[in-house]
Design a protein around this nucleic acid. Structure first.
Lengths: 166, 166
DNA sequence: GCGTCCGTACTCGGATAATCTCTGTCCGAGTTGCCGAGG
DNA sequence: CCTCGGCAACTCGGACAGAGATTATCCGAGTACGGACGC
């Protein structure tokens, strides 16, 4: 089991948008070029973030994606939740109500909940809690200033619009 | 993303073995019947647990699987680790060293570690820590006595040989 | 009657398909900005 | 010179293949038990 690569891509893209600081939309193709990613595939993930209210999407020329709210209010938990959905990691299939105990299924479900599912749920809560403690703003602040400036110059070339080299 | 169903199966089987309390091996087919699972597939997962030292496997008649150590010393973290491996959940591909920053790759890697990977790693540590706090013995104790007895009678039908189980 | 040998049945073990999610790619719908024509 | 209309380019958006992992299944190698044979 492993988290999809899209989580990493989306998180890095959010950090880039946060570090740029501009509210102007950035096309997915530009964000993909920053880290050498597949543009259409990254677009798919960013679209999911937009559908969940983390990004705003704009069509047409000078369109793209932009943060929907301040980077301080976007956590890693939000990113994972937007991409992976809300009920992941462990899905209890209630096998304890099958086989030998099929006749007591209703009685078992009415009693104590499945201990394994409870333990998994609690561990998952700890995981999400830890992720919720880290915001995109925190991560953006961890970027070295030199690289951040290079980012800005690449994403928003103040010179003139329309040139995109390499 | 989602944990494989085998984790649930393996955990329940371990709890069953723990609750039985007997050191006599139990065939995978019997364990599968307890919860109505696919016997060969469950066997595959139990084999993995055996390969990681959680279970002992015995061939031939009266063979099967048995706990390799006391249930108090087997945690849910051990189960997940045995089945999923040690380095899961989030795998940082270091995309921050690609694209624009490919020429600075060595310099970046020598500097601060990737903040996103660090956050993910910390969250994963919290997850595993929570899982490590729950033992198979804890889960076995949570089973209702009535169902536990039915389990023992099914797995070790003493009628056959009048054998006594602990 | 007792010990030994063999046959049988039962178990794990690994190799082999089917299905689903993730990964990657493509082209179409919609929108914005630009340019030229007209007033 | 200013305004309006059409054109073109650029963007997101959803639909379409390929790869990998999970799910599921089967048959073979090995082993312990049970019975039969020989002493």
């Amino acid at each position: 089991m492993q988290l999809p690569k899209g989580v990493e891509w989306a998180a890095h893209s959010l950090v880039v948008l946060a570090r740029i600081g501009s509210s102007r939309p950035v096309p997915s193709a530009v964000l993909a070029d920053v880290y050498g990613l597949s543009a259409p595939y990254l677009n798919k993930h960013l679209r999911k973030l937009a559908a969940n209210g983390l990004l705003t999407s704009t069509s047409g020329p000078s369109g793209g994606f932009a943060l929907a709210r301040p980077a301080e209010e976007i956590t890693m938990a939000d990113v994972v939740e937007a991409l992976e959905g809300r009920g992941p990691l462990f899905r209890c299939t209630e096998i304890r109500c099958d086989g030998l105990f099929r006749d007591r299924a209703a009685q078992i479900k009415a009693g104590r909940p499945c201990g394994i599912a409870a333990a998994m749920s609690q561990a998952e809560a700890a995981w999400r809690s830890s992720l919720a403690a880290v915001t995109i703003a925190d991560l953006a602040a961890g970027l070295d200033d030199r690289y951040a400036r290079r980012l800005s110059e690449f994403v928003h070339p103040d010179t003139r619009r329309g040139e995109r080299q390499t």
